[in-house]
Design a protein around this nucleic acid. Structure first.
Length: 584
RNA sequence: GCGCCCGUAGCUCAGCUGGAUAGAGCACCAGCCUCCGGAGCUGGGUGUCGGAGGUUCGAAUCCUCUCGGGCGUACCA
């Protein structure tokens, strides 16, 4: 898989992203520009304006080309509009507005054709081939197996799993991975802590070591050790004993983390053990390769990596003066391993405490000779739980952590996922526990779910009064797939002319491109915004127009609109791993 | 000190990689159920987009500086 330049990506977008309608207008516009002896810009901007009065699509070409053409933007736009109006291949009414925008109001035949296209695309709305099968690895959470998952890990889990689903829908071959740090000093400490608690359980007295783990879960682990094993491990010399207890504890913790993540709707393609690297030659190979690269030197008996070559604040230690490898070297080996596995791109989702590590990691990738865009690091910012208007104090040492499991017990999986996804990942998140607990209209998750349930209800109701459409994706869903009535022809859908209907159609048609842009920007939170807006438009449509009514053709057209909305909402909720309820 | 992130309505935040009069929710007020689900809809008002420069037809968005807040800055992981 070769490097993909920005240009390649743009070209792909044009092929796969835009609706036919948009491409038709784009083509007409390009051709008009050539008629006027103007070179069309590399990428003609043609977007839906915020304000509906400006039409369905709007282009800024006149503003862009004004300088080159020697005309002021408005005059140039006027000439372009004039030419466009003479053509009949545009499928839209054209007019000039503002400082030189060219606005298109798509004919209703075009709108209905777009809707029909969406309804015909099969079960997977929003699927496109922007990724062209490129292999992407997405690593997220990767919390140490030394304690339960906290809320930042939970946020990263919601973020990462949703992004993975989005990329996958956009044609990338995604592998999700959890890196388990099951080696090193922290594991020894965990083992020693468990051993201390076990001794305590047996009536002895042994303090938890300096810097060890204090939480109750350590006692629980100790209590779960089979007696015979415990006897044997206690008899070992200290270092080996710690290691034995540590290994047991790690397995317990990983199982628990895996279980909680699964409950949270997150499953990984692979759980990668750091110990796997140490057990093979991977670590020493990474070290050798770095030494060959020449970006390595020895000082004070330790081996340093010259990461300052790539703007890191200081050089980093690879091997300590006592001869033991650092976590950083293991990480080097890990990323080398990722590269060897053939990923075209690797995305690491890290917590806020790791943002200082980005430079050195990028430096490593550079030293290994990987392309600049190969490694992408995303930081998911911290989470404040807010209750009664105040931040909940969380102290790791006192064991007063709110865990993912507790959060799910408290507010439910769907609410938790949605709340974590509501905010941009780079922003600190205030998680309002009071609001999250409320199962009411104030809680935005239910707003979206309610819209979905309402649509399902309408579909049921319509079927019982003889109004039904063929909708194969509803097989086995409990909703009537209505095998007898085919999808209305575009002509029938043309009757969807009310403002609420047109707006709904346009939001629906925009969905595939929206998902793709959100995926490429690594911003899954946009799905929540989109879902809420779509739900709002649907509710308005529902209040303004009746689906089930005398005029059967109009009823079928509106029912088709309901089906399309249902599919898109289902897709968005599915990407977020949130249940779409048929009733609530 | 250095680095990263964030400053948008009273509060919590959107703003889809530069577009037209900056938008939602919450909170407050007033309306809407003989009718497909009222967990809904409709109206009512809020802004020096932290500040100052710059880039250009056009800036919340890009660049520089600056002021606040947060986090990070281990031969820990």
């Amino acid at each position: 898989m070769g490097r993909r330049t920005g240009r390649d990506v743009r070209d792909l977008r044009r092929v796969s992203g835009g609706s036919e309608l948009k491409e038709q207008i784009r083509a007409a516009l390009e051709s008009t520009l050539r008629d006027l002896q103007l070179e069309p810009p590399a990428q003609i901007q043609l977007d839906a304006p915020r304000d509906k009065r400006h039409g369905d699509l709007s282009s800024n070409v006149a503003l862009i080309l004004a300088r080159a053409s020697g005309l002021n933007p408005r005059a140039l736009a006027a000439r372009i509009v004039e030419r466009l109006q003479e053509r009949d291949d545009c499928g839209a009414d054209v007019d000039l507005a503002g400082p030189g925008f060219i606005n298109f109001r798509v004919h209703s035949s075009g709108v209905s054709a777009a809707l029909r296209e969406l309804l015909r695309t099969g079960v997977e709305v929003g699927r496109c081939d922007a990724g062209a099968g490129a292999r992407v690895q997405l690593e997220f959470v990767s919390a140490n197996p030394t304690g339960p998952l906290n809320v930042v890990s939970a946020r990263a889990a919601a973020y990462g799993s949703t992004l993975a689903a989005m990329l996958s829908l956009c044609g990338y071959e995604v592998q999700s991975e959890f890196y388990v740090n099951d080696a090193g000093r922290q594991i020894e400490l965990l083992g020693a802590s468990v051993r201390a608690r076990l001794t305590e359980l047996r009536g002895g007295a042994q303090p938890v070591p300096e810097g060890g783990y204090q939480g109750d879960y350590v006692r629980e682990i100790a209590a779960a050790i089979p007696g015979a094993d415990a006897d044997a491990w206690l008899a070992l010399p200290d270092a080996e004993s710690d290691a034995a207890f540590g290994a047991f504890a790690v397995e317990r913790m990983v199982d628990s983390q895996r279980g909680n993540l699964a409950r949270f709707g997150v499953r990984y393609d692979r759980w990668f053990r750091e110990s796997e690297l140490h057990g093979s030659d991977a670590v020493s190979e990474a070290r050798d390769e770095l030494e060959r690269s020449g970006y390595v030197y020895e000082r004070d008996g330790a081996l340093f990596f010259r990461s300052t070559t790539w703007n890191d604040a200081k050089d980093r230690v690879l091997v300590r003066s006592d001869g033991t490898p650092t976590y950083f070297l293991a990480d080097a080996a890990y990323h080398r391993n990722k590269h060897d596995r053939g990923f075209a791109k690797v995305i690491n989702v890290w917590g806020p405490d790791h943002h200082g590590h980005i430079q050195r990691m990028q430096a490593l990738a550079r030293a290994f000779g990987y392309p600049e865009e190969w490694l992408e690091v995303v930081i998911v910012q911290q989470v404040n739980l807010v209750e009664g208007g105040e931040k909940v104090k969380m102290s790791k040492r006192a064991g007063q952590l709110i865990t993912l499991a507790e959060l799910m017990d408290e507010v439910g999986e769907d609410v938790a996922r949605y709340f974590f996804l509501m905010r941009q990942h780079a922003s600190h998140l205030d998680f309002d526990l009071d609001l999250a607990r409320r199962q009411s209209d104030e809680n935005p998750v239910y707003y979206v779910k309610y819209a979905y349930a309402r649509i399902c209800s309408i579909i049921r109701k319509a079927a019982s009064s003889g109004l039904r459409l063929r909708a194969p994706e509803l097989e086995g869903s409990g909703l009537d797939p209505g095998a007898d009535a085919p999808l209305p022809q575009a002509a029938a859908l043309e009757r969807l002319e009310e403002p609420a209907e047109r707006e709904l159609v346009q939001q629906l048609v925009d969905y595939p491109g929206f998902v793709r842009r959100a995926a490429e920007a690594r911003e899954p939170h946009r799905l929540t915004t989109y879902s809420e807006e779509l739900a709002r438009t649907f509710h308005r449509f529902y209040h303004e127009q009746r689906v089930i009514q005398e005029d059967r053709d109009l009823g079928l057209a509106r029912l088709a609109l309901c089906h399309a909305t249902r599919r898109v909402l289902a897709s968005a909720l599915h990407l977020m791993a949130i249940e779409a309820p048929q009733s609530m």
